[in-house]
Simulated scan of single mutants.
Amino acid sequence: MLVVVPFADEVRPVAVADYRSTWTAEFAELSDRLQSALGQRAVVIDHVGSTSVPGLAAKDCIDAQVRVAALDEAELISLLSDVGFRCRPEEWNRTEVSAGVRCPKLVFAPPPGERATNVHLRLLGGPNARYALLFRDYLRARDDVRDAWGAFKQRLAARVTDLADYGQIKAPATDVLMAGAERWAAESGWVVSGGGFDFGGTEH
């Protein structure tokens, strides 16, 4: 589960908004900036998280996943810091467990004063990168699950506006959601595009 400790300029109550078609264009702009800053180090840049699912209610925060061939912390932090992005320093924003595997990562906040963004750098082929894509594609494929998940988040945000508390309550529900996603992946033959995954193939 993603746990973000906001910088001072990011602190605000949790609010889950109806889907906005502008999120796609805002991701595209962010992707261009990241590609320019990282060059060939950014092998694939994915729109992930709830704003990447058409029709899904979400916090107004764009999540971008950058898949890299090597997670060279010093180099990547320097390149993104040069264009204003701030590396989140918490230990849990440097590593996460996915499919029982401890996976390295880096998470960046936007430059101060910019729209809410999280930039996740993960290894190409890592199970944590797969997890983010499976979450997205499962909800894109299943309108019933998408609508139920959005309604749940809106009800929760209406009652719990503290980000840490919201995340703690949402975590076990996310586990249930992703169990369903894994069943869907097995039944549908879903696989990840972009290279680096043992099971290869095309994205659905």
Rank of each mutant, 00 (worst) to 15 (best):
E91K: 07
E91H: 09
E91S: 14
W92K: 06
W92Q: 05
N93W: 02
N93P: 07
R94W: 10
R94E: 12
T95E: 15
S98Q: 04
S98A: 15
S98D: 03
A99L: 02
G100S: 09
G100Q: 07
V101I: 15
V101F: 11
V101N: 09
R102F: 09
R102I: 09
R102L: 15
L106F: 07
L106I: 12
V107E: 11
V107M: 11
F108M: 10
A109Y: 11
A109K: 04
P110A: 07
P110V: 00
P111Q: 10
P111T: 12
P112Q: 15
P112S: 14
G113H: 05
E114M: 13
E114T: 13
R115D: 11
A116P: 08
H120G: 06
H120W: 06
L121S: 11
R122N: 01
R122M: 12
L123C: 09
L123V: 09
L123K: 04
L124E: 03
L124F: 00
G125V: 01
G125K: 04
G125E: 15
G126W: 00
G126H: 03
N128Y: 14
A129R: 08
A129V: 03
R130G: 11
R130Q: 07
A132C: 07
L133S: 00
L133D: 00
L134E: 00
L134C: 10
F135R: 01
F135K: 01
F135Y: 08
F135N: 04
D137Y: 01
Y138G: 00
Y138R: 02
L139F: 13
R140P: 00
R140W: 06
A141Q: 01
A141K: 01
R142I: 13
R142T: 10
D143P: 07
D143M: 02
D143E: 10
D144N: 07
V145Q: 05
R146Q: 08
R146V: 09
R146M: 03
R146W: 01
R146S: 09
R146T: 12
R146P: 15
D147S: 11
D147F: 13
D147L: 14
D147R: 12
A148D: 13
W149P: 03
W149R: 09
W149M: 11
G150H: 06
A151F: 08
A151D: 15
A151P: 01
F152I: 12
K153T: 05
K153S: 03
K153L: 01
K153M: 02
Q154N: 06
R155H: 08
A157K: 07
